[in-house]
Amino acid sequence: MTTERILPVAVMSLAIIILWYAGAVWLNSPQAAEALTRAGADWGTGDLIRQTFAMKRPILPTPDQVAVDLFQSLTGTPVTHIRNLLYHTGVTAGSALTGFALGVLLGVGLAVGIVQVRTLEASLLPWVIASQTIPILAIAPMIVVILGNLGFTGLLPKAIISMYLCFFPITIGMVKGLRSADPLTLDLMRTYSAGSAQTFRLLRLPASLPFLFTSLKVAVAASVVGAIVGELPTGGQAGLGARLLSGSYYGQTVQIWSALVMASLLGVTLVAVVGLAERALVRSGPGGGR
């Protein structure tokens, strides 16, 4: 990376951190003032600011508080221990990735069906779109309850919720991609009297890959959201969602923020992995080919 690319990122990060500290002062100062007054001694502005940065249960914890908590919860216990944040991240990642895999299967399957079988477009597509108008927060507890009744607990209900969020962008992107082949290249296949399976394998599928990967990035980020949402109604023993829930029960705002940071790190990592896979698999010229 050149300095040209580092500089804007550094400036933005610095600005965010300054704003964050300013926000902490602003949001925490009423509580901090109360605490200082209760302590009895005289206090000035300097004392107040220092106090807002050192609250036990701040409204908005400072970045350094979050960093310290993150460090402790990642290194304080063995990775397999229930108190280790990495353990919870692993649990969430497990259900997110399982849901993502199921979502890819379902999403690609639907897209292939919609493109290859004329009648499926009219019969399936409206349902696919309608499915996304139901709020995930409403349907998640029902999925958990219903699957729990059938004897499925733990990973599977969460993965199903992830899949529910995942498959939609994949279906939409893949349908568009499978139809993106240039009409002339389709004519070309016709002149070779290629069968529809050959046209699919040699033309439609490779032409769809750039579209598929764009959708996969959206979907893999959504799968993390789905897994966390799925962890909320399960009562919360393990997973980042469970940490968010218990943090808010006990007013442990620093713990909530640590879990949030881990969730976004997980999302960013998964999107980056999909991006690497894209670079390895899609070769269609600079910027997606012409």
């Binding site: 002339l184 070309l188 016709r190 002149t191 070779y192 490779p206 899609v282 010229g285 080919g289």
Partner: peptide, 19 residues
């Protein structure tokens, strides 16, 4: 004739597969 691959067609545009 097309099904028997009787001809080769060069289109007005190259129509190459970019991948």
């Amino acid at each position: 004739a097309r099904l028997k691959r009787a001809y080769g067609y060069v289109f007005q545009a190259p129509a190459l597969y970019p991948w």
